[in-house]
Design a protein around this nucleic acid. Structure first.
Length: 345
DNA sequence: TATATGCGCTTGAGCTAATA
DNA sequence: TATTAGCTCAAGCGCATATA
């Protein structure tokens, strides 16, 4: 599909006089895929010569196919091939690798824009019979429709016999599709299409967060998740089967931890509010007591105590000063009453 | 005649041995 | 010891040729 949709616009102008066939591109892509990691498409590192031997084409054609794959947007050359340094070769020898060079490393991948183009082509690839080689013409018969051919005993369509889309599963699918953390392929199907698969988890009160936690767990354990899985419903079904117990919500632990943090924060806020209320009450009581009989009596007692203390301090200082003055006069030979002696004169 | 393919040469990086 | 020629490896490119 990539070749059919993009070769003329993306590849042909670049390759000029060195075009490459669809068959050659497919063969080289298949050969490269055999050397890539199965789950991710990464780590494909056969040399051009190896690919030429595998495909039966020349190295030159392999090179052209590589360019085409790159321009089609389905492969990326991650590391260019080169000869190893002596240190690298010695390291390689220790693990039994006698090669002198390293081939380019390629990653094979899908392309979101290309996937959209392919999806857009589906109606063209599955034409209505009216567009086929069988010509239709207007019938002259009065009744052109066929009669009831339903087998006896079948009274309603299959979806109705299943009871229609599960409401809980539909609600969960709607929430999951609306969640910004959900993978893009969640939007490949309508909520009704997801509903049947999600009916079980919805019964056990799963949320969009649970589904995304399941996807993250899957990536963590399996190591990979395609950008555009071939059958998203099948993939999510595999994840749910891998998870096993629907009653064990994947995000339950996160929810419990957040609930505990929320409760702690609420208790902290309540305690702070109680402290503040106590402080406000005490301040109000203090302000109300100012000017009252108790406050006035206390002030009078305090003033009396302060006056007595002042008198005591004055007497003490006056006595100390008199003693000091007498001692100074005695040391100078002066009369204690204030007169001078002749000795000094 | 347009398209697809292969041959042969070139490039770039690195190693080895000969030589000044 | 530094320089240089020759070689390997991986990859790119132009042109001649085969083919439908």
């Amino acid at each position: 599909m990539a070749y059919d949709l993009r070769y003329d616009t993306h590849v042909r102008p670049v390759l000029g006089g060195n075009q490459v066939s669809r068959t050659a591109v497919l063969k080289v892509a298949e050969a490269r895929a055999r050397y890539a990691e199965y789950g991710t498409g990464r780590g494909s590192r056969p040399s051009n010569e190896r690919l030429a031997a595998d495909t039966g084409y020349s190295v030159r054609t392999v090179q052209r196919a590589d360019v085409a794959l790159r321009l089609l947007g389905v492969a990326t050359e991650v590391l260019r091939g080169r000869q190893r340094t002596r240190t690298e070769r010695l390291a390689s020898w220790r693990v039994g690798d006698r090669g002198r060079g390293w081939a380019s490393v390629w990653a094979l991948h899908d392309d979101a824009e290309l996937a959209r183009q392919v999806a857009a082509q589906v109606p063209v690839l599955s034409p209505h019979p009216g567009g086929s080689s069988v010509r239709s013409s207007s019938s002259r018969r009065k009744v052109v429709t066929t009669g009831r051919r339903r087998p006896a005993g079948v009274e309603k369509p299959a979806w109705r016999s299943r009871g229609g889309p599960d409401p809980g599963g539909t609600r969960l699918a709607v929430a999951w599709r609306a969640d910004r953390d959900s993978p893009r392929w969640a939007h490949r199907y309508t909520p009704q299409a997801w509903a049947r698969l999600l009916a079980g988890p919805a019964q056990h009160r799963w949320t969009a967060r649970d589904l995304n936690a399941l996807v993250r767990d899957w990536i963590g354990v399996k190591g990979t998740l395609p950008d555009s899985p071939h059958r998203p419903i099948g993939l999510l079904g595999a994840m749910l089967a891998w998870h096993g117990d629907d009653t064990a919500r994947p995000a339950a632990l996160d929810d419990a931890r957040e609930a505990e943090e929320l409760a702690t924060a609420r208790a902290r806020v309540a305690a702070a509010r109680a402290d503040h209320a106590r402080v406000v009450a005490a301040r109000s009581a203090g302000r109300a007591a100012v000017g009252g009989p108790g406050h006035t009596a206390a002030r009078e007692v305090a003033a009396t105590i302060a006056a007595r203390a002042l008198v005591r301090r004055t007497h003490t200082v006056a006595a100390d000063t008199a003693r000091h003055d007498a001692a100074v006069r005695a040391a100078r030979g002066l009369h204690p009453d204030g007169g001078n002696t002749d000795q000094h004169r």
